[in-house]
Amino acid sequence: MRIDEFDFQLPEDRIAQHPARPADAARLLEVRPDGLGDYGVRDLPRLLRPGDLLVFNDTQVIPARLVGHRDAVRVELTLHKPLGGPRWAAFARPAKRLKPGQTVRIAEDFAAEVAEKRDGGEVVLEFDREGAALMAALDAHGHMPLPPYIRGGEDEAADRADYQTRFAAKPGAVAAPTAALHFTDRLMAELEAAGIEWTTVTLHVGAGTFLPVKVEDTRDHIMHAEYGVVEAATAERVNAVRAAGGRIVPVGTTSLRLLETAAGEDGVLRPWSGETDIFITPGYRFRAADLMVTNFHLPKSTLLMLVAAFSGLERIKAAYAHAVEAEYRFYSYGDACLLHPEKD
């Protein structure tokens, strides 16, 4: 399909710069085969059914944006993929000023050497520490890696909590699974009282999530890979819920992509770990998801292609046009959708 089929116009003032407060006060657009419904996220307990299973991504966002210096030159680094030990792939700005062997000093006692230079502003960094020591240094000196459409990527103190879900348990993401940001302790208690269950998978979201699609046809796009895990207990639970007639409701495109990666042609979910580069576009046959909760996505993005595959391109176009007209808030800190499949 042509990429321009996934384009739409969005007024700049519709891009949320801060989350709703409280987080579960966000709006929710239900997209059904028979039309649209305007609700709030707190309506989910009555929009779902007892026995349904929500699937959250329990990845934890690390403070992956660093500001350092090479001699007197200021260098911005955004880590996006661990390469083992002290090595990380990162996007650097200005990358053209960096050469292999040079050191970028982030703090007096924290530095990284440029081990390799790649295309597109990407470098491989080798830090002066690894493991828990590196995570501690990132926590002390790093910034939350907000996407550029939120305040130009400049974080504030509140983003340490705002850009992290309540399910975050396994460090490794450099972007938040943002659909889950709406779920508060209060909302989870209300869902539990309504008989709606939940479980988790892990997909460490990479910065490739925000990379624009630069080709003209979806068949020519090379999808970024992200590391994920579906535990045996989670697979068993998902299969049991579905066998009992419950629906599987991934929260966010990351959870959905991982479930679809781990599901067989028979729809049975199996334990899985590794890197997934699954690229879902219209025409894909879904095996593991019955509904999904997600935010509103960028024009021409792989995430918009995924939701168009799930609910139908024309229906998603109509839903997004309604959302713009009704002043829904878009993107990472914006409002949510409850999507039904194209043929519910």
Rank of each mutant, 00 (worst) to 15 (best):
225 A>N: 02
269 L>Q: 02
55 V>N: 04
285 R>N: 05
84 G>C: 07
162 D>L: 14
36 L>D: 02
303 L>T: 12
236 E>P: 06
150 I>M: 11
307 V>H: 04
31 V>W: 01
312 G>D: 04
316 I>L: 11
142 G>P: 10
278 I>F: 01
189 A>G: 13
254 T>M: 01
255 S>I: 11
269 L>F: 04
328 Y>M: 05
111 A>G: 00
194 A>S: 12
325 E>M: 02
254 T>Q: 02
110 F>C: 09
320 Y>C: 04
40 G>P: 00
271 P>D: 04
12 E>G: 14
195 G>N: 05
319 A>C: 05
215 V>Q: 02
45 P>N: 06
109 D>C: 01
151 R>I: 15
294 T>C: 12
134 L>R: 02
89 A>L: 14
12 E>A: 15
332 S>D: 04
237 R>Y: 13
92 A>G: 07
161 A>V: 15
300 K>S: 12
276 T>S: 13
107 A>R: 03
7 D>A: 13
87 R>V: 08
306 L>A: 10
70 R>M: 14
36 L>I: 09
44 L>C: 02
108 E>S: 13
94 P>N: 10
113 E>V: 15
154 E>Q: 15
287 R>H: 10
243 A>W: 09
28 L>H: 07
163 Y>D: 13
25 A>S: 15
69 H>I: 06
141 H>M: 12
293 V>P: 02
28 L>W: 05
12 E>Y: 02
269 L>C: 03
334 G>A: 03
195 G>I: 09
131 G>K: 08
312 G>T: 11
49 R>M: 03
337 C>M: 15
173 A>M: 05
189 A>C: 03
257 R>K: 09
60 Q>I: 10
178 T>E: 08
100 P>I: 12
229 V>I: 14
177 P>A: 13
153 G>T: 15
135 M>G: 13
220 D>K: 03
104 V>H: 03
6 F>L: 07
125 L>V: 11
249 V>W: 04
